[in-house]
Design a protein around this nucleic acid. Structure first.
Length: 892
DNA sequence: CCTCTGCTCAGAGGA
C-alpha cells in the first residue's frame, strides 16, 4: 500500500515536472529518500533501497503511457467511442493537459466526498464531443479492471460534476503496464451505486433505536446482513469489527439471518471473548453512537454548505466574502501559504484563531471545500492560512469563505480503542481482565526485588523532597504488577509527584510512556522534568507543543538534525526511555515497534474510558493520576451520560481500593478555603502541608488607604466592602437576594449582569488595594457570563485578570478567586452545570488565599450540593447579605 | 440547555 501511495506521488508530481526518464528517476529518489514517508517505512521495517527498486520498476510504464496518450497521434478514422471495459484506443483519445491533482470534492447532493487523483483535459476524436475534462484514477496493483475499480471511477465522474460539466466517462490507468481503460458512466450504473450508498447510509444513521413503549429502551440496531463470502472476508481489515458487532449486537437482537457459512467465521473471530466483554463492547458502541449523533447535530459539518457565510459569521465560525491576495507560497510538500482579504472592509469579529482547522470554499456552491488547512494568523485586515492545496489555479476574482472545521466525527478514536481492546492479543487480554472483569491488581512483596542495587542511593535522594503520601505513592507504583491509581486532591502537587515518579522509574532503568489528554497537560510535566537529568522524546505537532519543550519534540529534532535516513530515525525513536505524547497520539508509528515498562496517564479522571485505554496497550503496567471528585469526561449526549459514558477509567478502577493511593497533603489553599471542600467532598482527609500554607493570606499593600477613602465617603457600602476585602477573611459569599440580581437567558446562554458588575467592582477595588492583576482569577460556570464580565473590563488596563470557566480552571490556581454563580430566578429553574458537585468542588479549590463568591442564596439553595455549602457558610458566619442596590452607588 | 480537546485524511493494494 505504501509503495502505491509513493507511486501516486511520483506520477502526480510528474504531471507538472514532466515524464522524462531523468525527471522520473529523480522524483522516485526524492520520494524514497525524502522525509515524507520515512515514518511509514520505519513502521513497516522497510529498507529504502528495496523500496526505490520497487518503484523504479514502474517508471518505464509511466513513459510508455505518455508516449501512447500524450503525443498527438495521426488521426485515423474514429471507431471506438467510449465503449465499456476496453483498453482505450490511443488514436481515439489523447490527454492534452493535466489540470489538477488530488482535487478535493464534497458532494452533498450525492452524499459523497473524495479526492481525484488527476484531473485531465482529454481530446476525443469524435465530431460531437471534442474536448472533455475527465477524472483519471491511478492504480498500481494488478490490472484487474474490476467492478470495484470501475465503480470508483464512476463515482469520480459524479464528484467531477460538482465542479464542471458531466464528463460522461472517466479514465482508469494501471501503472504496472501503462494500460488505460475508459470507464463510461452510464445512468443505470450511477443509479445502482447511489442506491448502495444510500442503503449503507440509512443503516449507519439509524444505528440507534429508541423504543417508545414506555420502557425507554435504547439499543443498537442491526446492520445490513452479512455477505456470505468467506474469501472476501478472509483479508478484510474490518473482519474483527464485523464479527464483534454481529455477535454482541445483531445476535443479541435476534437478527433474522446470518449466512450459515459466516456463523463459524464469526465464532472463530470472537471465541476468545467472554459474555462480559461482548456486553462492554455493545454498551460502548451504543454510547459512542449516541454521542456522535449528538455532536453531529450540534456542530455538524453540514453547516458549511447549509448556511450562508453571513449566517455562519454570526456565530464567529466563518469568515466570508474574501479574496485571495499575493501569490501562493509553497512552504513544503502539501503546505501552501495563502493570504485572504475581505472584499471590502476589515475582517469581522470571529472565533477563528491561530492553529484552528479550516475548510476553504468558494462562495459559489460549486467550489465547496476546495482545500483544508490551518489558520496561521488572523489580523485586522487579513487572514493567512496554510492549506493542503494551492488555490493559485482557481479563476481570479473568486470569492472565498473560511469555515471553522469543528471536530465533527470524533468518535473514531474511541471505537478504535474499543475494537483493539477486543483483539486476541496478550496485552488486550490483560486489559480486558483488569478493566472489564475487574480482576484484582497484584503486587510484588518486597521493594528490593524491583529496585536495582545501584539505583538505591539515587532513588533515596530523589525521594527526599517528597511528603509522606507522595513517598507512599512512589512505593506503590514500584510494587505494582498491574496498575496504581494516584488520587491527586486539589493542590497536592500532582505534577511534582508525576515528575518525581518519572525520575525514579528512569533511575531504575525502566522505560516510561507519559501521556495525558491535552497537549498542555503533557507539557506541564515536561517543563518540570526538563530541569532534571532525564532525557525524553516528545511526540506530536510542533505547533501544539509548548515553546520551551520544542527542542525535545520529534519534528523539531528531525528538522535540526535533518534526519533523512531510516537508520537515523530509528535511532531517534529508540534514543530515550521516556516518551511523552497525548492519549490520542498513540497512532504514531513508534508504538508499532516499542513497548514500555510503565505508562503514566495524567488527568485520567477527565479522560473518556476508551481514549484512556489507548496508550495502555503499549505498557506492562500503568499509573492513572486524577481525582474523580473533580470534573469527569465531557459527554454531550444526555442519554450517553445516563448510560455511564462519563465514567472515566480512573473512576471505574477505583473500586479496587488496594490499587489506590491518595495525595492528601496540599500546598495551595489556606485552611479556611481548604475547609470548604474538606467538609463537602473529602471528609476531612485533606490537610495543609505546613503552618505557612495554612495561614497564608493575600497581600494588599494599599488596603488601609482604600479603607480610609471609603470611610471618608461615608457610604453604606464601605462596611460590607471592607469586610469582603479584608485579607484575614479568606472566604465570603455575597448574597444578592436583596439587590435583587436576576439572571438573563439569551440565545447564546445564561448570564447575570448585576453579578458581573459586582465582579468588576470588587476586582477594581482589589487592584486599587495593590493586588497584581495576574493574582486575580474570575470564574463562572457559563461562557455567556464570561462575555458579559469581559465587556466591563475592556476599558480597564488590567486585562491580565484571567476570566474563565470552571472547567478551564481545573488544574490551575490563583491567589484570589472571584466566583460568580450566575443562576438567580424565581421560577425554580436549575442548570445542569451547577448541579454537578464535582464542578463546584473545582470552583471552590482554585483560590490560594482568598475566595469571594457571588450568588443568590435562595436560588442556590435549590441545588443539593450548594445547599450543603451554604449551610456550612452560614454556620461559620461567612455569608454577607448585600443591601438593595449595592452595585449601583459607588464609583471606583 | 449551553461545560470542550483531541484528531489531517481519503485511499494506498490484496484476493
Amino acid at each position: 500500500m505504501l509503495v502505491g501511495t509513493m507511486l501516486h506521488d511520483v506520477f502526480q508530481k510528474a504531471t507538472t515536472c514532466g515524464f522524462t526518464e531523468a525527471v522520473l528517476q529523480n522524483l522516485a529518489l526524492q520520494t524514497v529518500y525524502g522525509p515524507k514517508y520515512l515514518k511509514e517505512m520505519y513502521q513497516l521495517k522497510l529498507n529504502q533501497a528495496d523500496v526505490l527498486q520497487e518503484i523504479e520498476e514502474y517508471l518505464p510504464s509511466f513513459q510508455k503511457w505518455t508516449s501512447d496518450y500524450m503525443t498527438p497521434a495521426t488521426l485515423t478514422n474514429w471507431t471506438l467511442g467510449l465503449s465499456a471495459g476496453n483498453i482505450t484506443d490511443k488514436r481515439a483519445l489523447q490527454v492534452s493537459e493535466f489540470l489538477d491533482i488530488e482535487e478535493n470534492v464534497w458532494s452533498p447532493r450525492f452524499g459523497l466526498k473524495g479526492k481525484i487523483d488527476v484531473t485531465t483535459k482529454v481530446k476525443i476524436h469524435q465530431k460531437s464531443k471534442g474536448v472533455k475534462i475527465m477524472p483519471l484514477e491511478l492504480k498500481t496493483g494488478k490490472e484487474s479492471n474490476s467492478i470495484e475499480h470501475r465503480s470508483q471511477v464512476i463515482l469520480y465522474t459524479l464528484l467531477s460534476q460538482e465542479r464542471r460539466e458531466d464528463p460522461e466517462a472517466g479514465l482508469l490507468l494501471y501503472l504496472k503496464t501503462g494500460n488505460m481503460y475508459t470507464v463510461p458512466a452510464n445512468r443505470l450504473d450511477k443509479r445502482e451505486l447511489l442506491k448502495i450508498r444510500n442503503e449503507l447510509s440509512f443503516y449507519l444513521t439509524n444505528v440507534v433505536q429508541k423504543s417508545d413503549n414506555g420502557t425507554k429502551e435504547i439499543k443498537l440496531t442491526s446492520l445490513p446482513s452479512l455477505i456470505a463470502d468467506k474469501q472476501a472476508c478472509k483479508f478484510c481489515s474490518q473482519l474483527r469489527n464485523c464479527a464483534l458487532y454481529s455477535r454482541s449486537v445483531e445476535q443479541e437482537n435476534g437478527s433474522p439471518y446470518i449466512p450459515a457459512d459466516m456463523l463459524s467465521v464469526i465464532e472463530k473471530e470472537t471465541a476468545h471473548l467472554k459474555v462480559s466483554h461482548l456486553q462492554y463492547f455493545n454498551l460502548w458502541c451504543l454510547m459512542c453512537s449516541l454521542e456522535a449523533s449528538s455532536k453531529e447535530s450540534k456542530t455538524g459539518r453540514k453547516n458549511i454548505w447549509m448556511l450562508s457565510s453571513e449566517e455562519r459569521e454570526e456565530d464567529g465560525q466563518c469568515v466570508g466574502n474574501l479574496i485571495r491576495i499575493g501569490s501562493v507560497q509553497c512552504v513544503s510538500d502539501g503546505q501552501h501559504l495563502h493570504c485572504f482579504q475581505r472584499r471590502s472592509g476589515d475582517i469581522p469579529a470571529t472565533n477563528l484563531m491561530t492553529g484552528d482547522r479550516v475548510v476553504v470554499s468558494g462562495e459559489e456552491k460549486k467550489f465547496l471545500a476546495l482545500s483544508t488547512g490551518y489558520i496561521k494568523e488572523v489580523n485586522k485586515n487579513d487572514i493567512t492560512c496554510i492549506l493542503d492545496r494551492s488555490l493559485a489555479k482557481i479563476p481570479p476574482g473568486t470569492i472565498f469563505r473560511l469555515d471553522h472545521e469543528e471536530g465533527g466525527s470524533g468518535m473514531q478514536s474511541h471505537l478504535g480503542s474499543l475494537s483493539k481492546l477486543m483483539e486476541n492479543s496478550p496485552s488486550s487480554e490483560k486489559l480486558r481482565d483488569l478493566v472489564i472483569d475487574f480482576k484484582k491488581p497484584s503486587f510484588i512483596q518486597h521493594l528490593s526485588s524491583v529496585l536495582p542495587h545501584d539505583a538505591k542511593d539515587t532513588v533515596a535522594n530523589i525521594l527526599k523532597g517528597l511528603n509522606k503520601p507522595q513517598k507512599q505513592a512512589m512505593k506503590h507504583v514500584l510494587l505494582s504488577k498491574d496498575y496504581t491509581l494516584i488520587v491527586g486532591m486539589p493542590g497536592t502537587g500532582k505534577t511534582t509527584t508525576i515528575c518525581t515518579l518519572v525520575r525514579i522509574l528512569y533511575a531504575c532503568g525502566f522505560s516510561v510512556l507519559l501521556t495525558s489528554y491535552t497537549h498542555s497537560a503533557v507539557d506541564n510535566i515536561l517543563l518540570k522534568l526538563k530541569k532534571f537529568k532525564v532525557g525524553f522524546l516528545r511526540l506530536g505537532r510542533t505547533q501544539k507543543i509548548h515553546p520551551e519543550v520544542h527542542k525535545f519534540g520529534e519534528e523539531e529534532i528531525c528538522k535540526t538534525k535533518s534526519i533523512k535516513s531510516l537508520g537515523a530515525l530509528e535511532e531517534l525513536y529508540n534514543s530515550q526511555p521516556v516518551v511523552a505524547t497525548t492519549c490520542m497520539g498513540v497512532n504514531h508509528p513508534i508504538f508499532t515497534r516499542r513497548r514500555f515498562d510503565f505508562c503514566i496517564v495524567d488527568e485520567a479522571s477527565q479522560i473518556s474510558q476508551a481514549i484512556c485505554l489507548g496508550p495502555l496497550f503499549f505498557a506492562d503496567r500503568f499509573v492513572l493520576v486524577g481525582d474523580h471528585q473533580q470534573l469527569p469526561p465531557l459527554v454531550q449526549s444526555a442519554e450517553a451520560r445516563e448510560l455511564g459514558m462519563s465514567e472515566s477509567l480512573f473512576k471505574r478502577l477505583e473500586r479496587n481500593q488496594d490499587a489506590v493511593v491518595q495525595l492528601t497533603v496540599q500546598y495551595r489553599m489556606n485552611s479556611k478555603i481548604m475547609a470548604l471542600s474538606n467538609k463537602l467532598v473529602y471528609e476531612g482527609r485533606l490537610e495543609c502541608a505546613s503552618e505557612r500554607v495554612s495561614s497564608a493570606i493575600v497581600q494588599l499593600p494599599h488596603f488601609k488607604s482604600l479603607q480610609l477613602e471609603l470611610e471618608f465617603k461615608g457610604s453604606i457600602e464601605s462596611v460590607w466592602v471592607k469586610d469582603v476585602l479584608e485579607p484575614s477573611n479568606p472566604v465570603c459569599l455575597l448574597n444578592t437576594e436583596k439587590i435583587p440580581a436576576l439572571e438573563t437567558e439569551e440565545k447564546c446562554g445564561i448570564s447575570n449582569r448585576i453579578e458581573a458588575k459586582l465582579v468588576f467592582l470588587l476586582t477594581s477595588l482589589l487592584l486599587k488595594a495593590g493586588c497584581k492583576p495576574s493574582d486575580i482569577g474570575i470564574i463562572a460556570p457559563y461562557r455567556q457570563q464570561l462575555k458579559v464580565i469581559c465587556s466591563y473590563f475592556t476599558n480597564l488596563s488590567s486585562s491580565a485578570v484571567e476570566i474563565n470557566t470552571v472547567d478551564k480552571y481545573q488544574g490551575r490556581d490563583k491567589s484570589i478567586i472571584i466566583l460568580s454563580f450566575v443562576r438567580s430566578n424565581i421560577n425554580g429553574k436549575l442548570g445542569d452545570l451547577l448541579k454537578d458537585w464535582r464542578r463546584l468542588n473545582v470552583a471552590l479549590t482554585r483560590a490560594k488565599h482568598k475566595l469571594i463568591m457571588i450568588g443568590c442564596v435562595p436560588t442556590l439553595c435549590r441545588f443539593d450540593s450548594l445547599e450543603k455549602l451554604i449551610c456550612y457558610l452560614r454556620s461559620e458566619n461567612l455569608i454577607c447579605n448585600l443591601p438593595p442596590g449595592a452595585h449601583e452607588h459607588f464609583t471606583v
